[in-house]
């Protein structure tokens, strides 16, 4: 994607309008939905207001994202410090292996431990979202030219000054890319929360699957996709550019 050309705020704005518009105006789309699902009595999901579901979805994802960013960045910084170096290989390995673990499995494992509802889904999302954040923060910090760090030390900067003025700014494009991946994945993964009793945009999908109503599934899927696109393009607009 190349949001840097033209008006960079245009993409998130368009996706955002489509998303909110979709939530508000879904009930007027009965005709096209009828095409997808001609047999069912109802084709518009009306059990819960879609905007409310969107709000809950965003809340769950934001809380989980905030937690994974804080925990992930702090953990990655900790293991790249001199004192935490011993844990670096372990954390790096877990972070890259964890990525291969399917999110459904994370949820499946989280429910027996944490029960049903919104809390387990937040925890599962946070754990799953942690991995790209940790991996990218590590890659960002470890990817800094060793000469730069050497010079920073040689000039007499303290460890804290090096972290804040050199390492974090230089690693930030990579870290933000990790957060972007984490959040985008979690927007989709959060939908699975509906299977364990969390109420969000996954609810129409699950209801559709249970009742054999494809129209419900389409509504949920389209809205989640629009949300993912909105948030992703927001990152594209706000993320720091890759400076050389």
């Amino acid at each position: 994607m190349n949001e840097r050309h033209g008006a960079p705020w245009l993409a998130p704005l368009c996706w955002g309008i489509l998303l909110v518009g979709g939530c508000l105006l879904m009930r007027f789309l009965e005709a096209p939905l009828r095409l997808v699902e001609p047999d069912s009595r109802a084709v518009v999901f009306e059990r819960v207001d879609l905007l409310t579901l969107l709000g809950r979805h965003l809340l769950v994802v934001s809380v989980a994202a905030l937690l994974s960013v804080v925990v992930g960045v702090v953990a990655a910084i900790a293991v790249t410090r001199e004192k935490g170096r011993d844990f670096l290989p372990l954390v790096a390995q877990v972070a890259s292996m964890g990525q291969t673990f399917p999110p459904v499995a994370v949820l499946a494992l989280a429910v027996p431990v944490l029960g049903f509802g919104t809390v387990p889904i937040i925890v599962a999302l946070m754990l799953y979202g942690l991995l790209p954040v940790v991996r990218n923060t590590l890659a960002g910090i470890e990817g800094i030219d060793p000469a730069v760090r050497e010079a920073a030390r040689g000039m007499g900067m303290t460890s804290r000054q090096i972290l804040r003025q050199v390492e974090l700014p230089l690693a930030s494009p990579v870290i933000v890319a990790g957060i972007r991946t984490s959040v985008t994945i979690n927007i989709a993964t959060a939908a699975l929360g509906a299977t364990v009793g969390a109420s969000n945009l996954g609810e129409p999908i699950i209801a559709g699957i249970v009742n054999g109503n494809t129209a419900y599934i389409v509504q949920g899927a389209v809205l989640i996709a629009l949300l993912a696109l909105t948030v992703d393009s927001l990152f594209g607009w706000l993320a720091p550019g890759h400076t050389g």
């Binding site: 030219d145 730069v148 010079a151 040689g154 000039m155 007499g156 230089l170 400076t243």
Partner: peptide, 19 residues
């Protein structure tokens, strides 16, 4: 840090801060 700030240091790869 105090010691290093009173000693100039230059290296082959310069180590200039790219940002």
């Amino acid at each position: 840090e105090v010691l290093r700030r009173r000693i100039g240091y230059a290296i082959q790869s310069t180590g200039l801060f790219p940002h």
